[in-house]
Amino acid sequence: MTKFPMIVTRGLGKSYGSNVALAGVDLVVSQGTILCLLGRNGAGKTTLVRILATLLAPDTGWAQIAGIEVRRDAARVRQLIGLAGQFAAVDDGLSGRENLELVAGLYGLRRREARARSQEVLERLGLAQVGGQLVRTYSGGMRRRLDLGASLVGKPAVLIMDEPTTGLDPANRIELWKLIEDLVRDGTTMLLTTQYLEEADRLADQIVVIERGRVIAGGTPDELKQRVGGDVLEVRTTNAADVERVVQLLDGLGSGRPVADMRDQRVTLPTTERVQTLLAAARRIEESNIPIADLGVRRPSLDDVFLALTAPGAESRAAVPLPSSPGRSTETRTAPA
């Protein structure tokens, strides 16, 4: 079964003066699937989202939503999309219900429909109780949910969400994930940006990793994990100052280069020979007398993929295109041990 490509971009580029925000991005999102656009701050995620949402014209390339070119027929595209921007764009001085009814009205729903649809969305988001209260009184999580609700009232076929869970506490994040999964099950096509690998791993059918406006990798979460190759040896040092030394120490072992993660005082190393690599690493560390907090081998997480892809010198390796599998991945994903 071939699925309809609901979102397509080709060679999308955008610069702000000399600052290149997007440098030729290609991606495809099939109908009823979710693509996570993964990238750090400043990678170009919001720029891409704004182009898809008809808010910004690209300098080069084109984008289509449901086969309609975004620039040529923006008015029709706006009838198909729902946008939840990076910051919750709900009005503090209106009640939750008033916010939704306003947006429903702007989608062209009649008063009656708008009211019914808003109620439906409020219930779905667990906000029915507080629907009549001013948004000013809502918690951060409730505001976020309402903002997502506003992008849902028009029953858009394509939902575009820019970092929907940034700033949410874990409980709210998990709740939002469930909602997103429900929506995709109902046939909504979704493009979601995130800085969290865990999020992309959990939600995505396809992940596209961007860095400085370029796609540096793409594929299913499993494909991306395979790219790290086999397993991952992980060393956590006791002192941050030792991270670099451990990197030098481990160089040459494993199936790739060791990667440092300064924030977590961690060095990871891809390996296809888990036992040999672990023993060799243990020996070298013992001889060097570097104090370490943890040492082990585990299944790769998306974090490892991201680190491997964005480490200095990784770009040439990352340029190798990945095989892409159409549709939803049916394999079960093993959580990293």
Binding site: A53, T54, R78, G85, Q86, F87, A88, A89, D91, Y107
Partner: peptide, 13 residues
Amino acid sequence: SKGATDRFRSLPT
């Protein structure tokens, strides 16, 4: 700055 304009501009109005 609060994103309301982006939302309205992305709607079919």
